[in-house]
């Protein structure tokens, strides 16, 4: 099962950091995600994309996980040579993750 099967995700950008908001379709999957989708798992999956720290915030009031990844945009939105300078498409890179 991929993360894509049970959750949706949106990326946001700030400087050279990105946010990845992971929201389960079914609220009953929130605890499962909290257990499996640790900051380390996300950091490992995004190896080669995110160079810095990955921090997870549990936003339990809306059953969501917020990952804040630093050094993720190859110098940042305004100066990066990458095709997707904002990292907007990276939400679907995370959703590729095999979650068990």
């Amino acid at each position: 099962m991929k993360l894509y099967d049970i959750a949706h995700c949106r990326t946001g950008d700030k400087g050279n950091s990105i946010t990845l908001s992971v929201i389960p379709y079914e609220e009953s999957n929130y605890e499962f995600l909290k257990e499996r989708l640790t900051a380390d798992v996300v950091k490992q999956h995004l190896k080669g994309i995110v160079e810095g720290e990955v921090k997870r915030y549990d936003v339990k009031n809306i059953q969501a996980l917020q990952f804040v990844c630093s050094e993720a945009l190859v110098t940042g939105v305004t100066t990066s040579l990458t095709l997707d300078t904002h990292g907007k498409s990276l939400s679907f890179a995370l959703l590729e993750l095999e979650i068990g």
């Binding site: 946001g12 929201i23 915030y57």
Partner: peptide, 16 residues
Amino acid sequence: LRTAKEQLLYEVIDPN
């Protein structure tokens, strides 16, 4: 609720 949740967290680097 889903669109609202995605937007609430959009570009938020510290939800607290």
